Structure formats: structure tokens, C-alpha cells
Computed example of a mutant assay.
Amino acid sequence: MNDYYLLMLLLFGASVLVQSYLSSTYRKYSRVANTRGFTGAQIARMILDENGLRNVPVEMVPGQLTDHYDPIRKVVRLSQVNYGVPSVAAAAVAAHEVGHAIQDKVRYPALNLRARLLPALQIGANFGPLLVIVGLVLTSPGLFWLGIVFFAGALIFHLVTLPVEFDASRRALEILSARGYLVGPEVVGARTVLSAAALTYISAFAIALVQLLSFLGFARRD
């Protein structure tokens, strides 16, 4: 079990570094204006319209890196800075979120699967570890294995999230470059921002995987 604890510690440390890298990368390219002078909101609106998604609104939300696409309400939401600032980072993030809207339009399989699984898997992520711990404390195999099943479902959510996010970034970079919204080094900057964001999803999956393995390690020990 010591190996599991060591690996978990290393992964948590790596996760902190990844978050720090994302924050520093985002800050760097938030200060770099894009040549065309388009804000994130303008980029999002133009890409949406070009893809026949004129009915999808672009809204501003508070916070930093709170940007997301809501597949239920069919709306792209951008954080305040990305919404109104003509930076490379804003363009990258806006195009990425619109990438999710395009996925929704074309019924991208992984996005549809994630949307269907989300309610159940959120329960698994919240209650799985708790059930495992309660099962161990009360020496209840039933609760323990129920927690394992719940937590395994949360791991599946992290796994399904990876292709969804990677594909949205791929679509974003292709559009930004092909349509000339970003040029030259700006495209490289956008790729750097989106690659840094992708690392956070990879680290989340790795941590969830090691947590599940550590729980299974308790079962083998007992």
C-alpha cells in the first residue's frame, strides 16, 4: 500500500504543477493581443454563426477559467476576461467552447455519452469514496463494493471526458487557423493554452485511477 500512497502523493504534486502551469500559461497569453482584435465573445459568435448555430447565445459569467458550453440550455458561457478582451488566450478558450457546441450539433458520440452518464457519475464521484471508507470502518463488504462501483463510474466519466476535450481543442485550432482569426505565432500560443488545459483533464483521470486502485488494494489486503 505504501506504493499507492507514494504514487498518489506524486500525482497530487503533479496536479498542482499542472494547475500552476495552466494559470501561468493562461496569464501569459491573456496579455498577448490577437492581431485581428477580436474578443472572445466576437470569436465565439462568428464561429457559431458560420456553423449554423445562430440560435446559440454567448453569455458572460463571473470568475476566471469558468468558461463552458451548457449542452442542456444550448449556450456558450465565457468568463468576464475572455468575453471582452481581444487576447490570444480569449480566442483559444472561446473557440474551444464553441467546439463543444459544434460537437453537440453533429452529435459527437463521446459528448453524447458524457451527457447521458453525467448525473449518475456525479453521484458516484461524490459518494463512492465515502461509501468505501464507511464500508471499511464498519467492515461492511456490501457498502465497500458499492462504493467501488460508484467510484469506477466516476473514473469512466474522466475517461470519456478526454476525447471530448481533445476533439474540441482540435476543432478550435483548425478553425482559428483556417479562418485567419489568429495568425502565425498566435496559433502556437493558442495551442499552448489548450494543451495546458488538456493536461488538467489527464491528471484528473490519473488521480481517479490511482484512487480506485488504492481502494482495490485495501480489498486485496483484507
Rank of each mutant, 00 (worst) to 15 (best):
P57N: 04
F150S: 10
R170I: 02
Q211N: 15
A90N: 10
L11V: 14
L9T: 14
V98W: 01
Y108T: 09
S24G: 01
L138P: 00
A219K: 06
L131V: 05
L11W: 06
G13K: 08
L199S: 11
R77D: 01
L176G: 07
W145K: 09
L182W: 09
F144W: 12
D49V: 13
N55E: 15
L182V: 00
A198G: 08
A154T: 12
F144E: 06
V56D: 09
E50A: 15
Y21Q: 08
S79T: 13
I72D: 10
Q103F: 01
V187Q: 00
P71L: 06
R54G: 15
V61R: 11
Q103I: 05
L146Y: 07
Y29I: 02
Y69K: 01
Q80D: 13
V188Q: 10
S79P: 04
S214E: 04
S203T: 09
N2F: 05
R220L: 15
R221E: 13
V137W: 12
A110F: 15
F144S: 07
K28W: 10
L22A: 03
A197T: 14
V187S: 02
G153Q: 07
T139M: 13
T35I: 12
H100R: 05
V106M: 10
H68G: 01
R170V: 08
V132W: 03
L48F: 02
A197Y: 12
V188E: 13
R45N: 10
L11Y: 06
M8Y: 01
E165A: 06
M46T: 05
L6T: 12
H158Q: 13
A152V: 09
I47R: 00
Y83R: 02
I72H: 08
A110L: 10
R77V: 03
L162V: 12
S20A: 11
E97K: 08
R170A: 05
L17R: 11
V85N: 06
S30P: 02
V98D: 04
Y5V: 08
P185D: 08
A110K: 13
T200Y: 10
T39M: 02
Q64R: 14
G37W: 04
G189I: 07
R116F: 15
Y4I: 04
S87T: 12
I47V: 12
Y69L: 00
L111Y: 00
A172E: 06
I72P: 04
I43Y: 06
V98G: 03
I43C: 10
L118D: 14
T192I: 04
A92G: 12
N112C: 11
R116L: 15
V18S: 12
F144C: 06
L182F: 01
R179G: 00
P71Y: 08
L7F: 06
M8F: 14
S23M: 10
R36K: 15
P86C: 01
N34F: 08
S15N: 13
I175W: 09
A125D: 01
A92H: 11
A196Q: 07
L121E: 09
I102C: 01
S203L: 15
D104H: 15
S23C: 04
